[in-house]
Design a protein around this nucleic acid. Sequence first.
DNA 1: TTGTAAGCGTTATCAC
DNA 2: GTGATAACGCTTACAA
Lengths: 334, 334
Amino acid sequence: MAITIRDIAREAGVSTATASRALRRLHNVDPATIARVQAVADRYSYVVSPAASRLAGGRTGSVAALTPYLSRWYFATVLSGVEQVLQDAETDLLLLVAGDPGRPARTPPVRRLSQRVDGFLVISLDPDSPELGGLLDLDAPKVLIGTKWPGVPSVSIDDERAARLATQHLVNLGHRRIGMIAGRPGRSPFLAERARKRGFETAVAWPVPDSSALDCGYGDFTVDGGETAMNALLAQPDPPTAVFCMSDEMAFGAMRALRLHGLAVGTDVSLVGFDGHDLAGMLDLTTVAQPVAQIGAVAAQMLLDQISDASEHKPGEVEIPTKLVVRSSSRPPT
Amino acid sequence: MAITIRDIAREAGVSTATASRALRRLHNVDPATIARVQAVADRYSYVVSPAASRLAGGRTGSVAALTPYLSRWYFATVLSGVEQVLQDAETDLLLLVAGDPGRPARTPPVRRLSQRVDGFLVISLDPDSPELGGLLDLDAPKVLIGTKWPGVPSVSIDDERAARLATQHLVNLGHRRIGMIAGRPGRSPFLAERARKRGFETAVAWPVPDSSALDCGYGDFTVDGGETAMNALLAQPDPPTAVFCMSDEMAFGAMRALRLHGLAVGTDVSLVGFDGHDLAGMLDLTTVAQPVAQIGAVAAQMLLDQISDASEHKPGEVEIPTKLVVRSSSRPPT
DNA sequence: TTGTAAGCGTTATCAC
DNA sequence: GTGATAACGCTTACAA
């Protein structure tokens, strides 16, 4: 049916073993042989069968990316960075959405996946979370994005510091009643969210020592949730004059809530978001911008390096800098 | 190393052949045998090796999705619908971003992919486009999303009709100078874009017979592009009082342009978008809403059916209805 | 540097 | 309904 390595080997006048080695550019092959074999392979536009290769102990030529969401801006953008690097390396991307709330938890297919990928990229999810069902036990190469775990390579930002600086910005403008819109009540399953909360609390501790009195709304990282959360904050006896939102999308929702209340963003209530969403500029939202696609790209490259390097020295925890982009949604209180 | 089907077979007291058949629920196996084998498999949490299965002539248990973009709302949302259906069917999703403009064209890995997937899902791309390198030649199961091709199953909306109704809405409001923001000048590579353009032209032909005088800006389906396009439209001697945008994201950019010009959306210039973006509601944008995630889900299910059904009768061209959602961005001219 | 040959884990074919 | 067994296409000791 399809053309096999045996055909290539025969045509090139070598054994299948040599053909295999040549196609993989192993170091102990005569360059001339490599050239010859490759020429034949090209002529027949031959590609190795990943299944056979894998079965015989080779690579699968693909990696899995595990993400809690796909259609949200941050995750889609991270993945686009990932995909670009992988495609350039001719590595396939196997996408798995795990842990989307509202979808009943299911037996995580990590074990099944581990047979068909060379490594894992994990976005935002803690590697010990149930959605990942024992990913940590697998000794497959892995890189975490937006979260950390002892001994596992990762790419992330300093969420605590970024949240602190964003909040400090509001404090510096003169705000004293500062609210926050987080994901959900209780302990967040996301490391980054917990860190952002700490950063916020540190920054407001100075003007507002009684941190238990802080206003916190919950927006589940969605636009609608942000609107609901902002409404809740506004319904309080003494509403905040500024709000730190843990994501731009929630800030967008908050903007809408303010508008429906007849309040002007930046004038009546200041807003700071988090992410650097495409639309933040369009909506004049002050935000903590992170190079999201680049984060994905860096992580993907780290994973590829880990897969190809026989060396055991894993990369460490890479930290990508963020930048507070000030726009007109944050101004001094009036 | 890993546990194989032989282990399961031995433990269940059957041959590997029977074990294989039982695990795949073939019709000529004793139900009792199936139960026994499955029980053993569960006990050892055994999973078949996709590589071996594939090599031996079985399924790969995965499908490829080809998309021109990943981080844009429409595509990410379609894919989330796709992913959900595939995950429920325990089928892996192999993601491939092809044809992102600005990325140099590369030898399309469709042939390589065809060895590792059971079928293809193609989003928006014409199946004969160079980015897909001979996908049509492959007789693998495929389903198109948002585009059509003779003889290939597809899921799409009636772009022409939707664009016509959206434009008609502006006409009905009393607008007579109606502009359009499309993707790029010249013949679009996207069938849907061409159809939307026809719909627009049909609708404006009545009030504006001289269709060559129609104002058309080009926004490349991005927010920034939409802003640029709107600026261009406004720079004309007699700017339009209403604009039909081929995507919500371009409409968002147009909104920003209007705002920077000191013009009020809906009052000075009416705007209609296309897609039903998450943020359209938040920005009070009138838009042609399509059930994007559902479109992906339907297509994925069609592909799965096609893969499992030995029957040769392919599904046809499925058309999903859209809905014009009127908000305050479109109002009668003042 | 290259060749030989033994798997890798599953499915399909053909008997029984 | 079930059991042998020969592929499937490749990689990797081991030999040369």
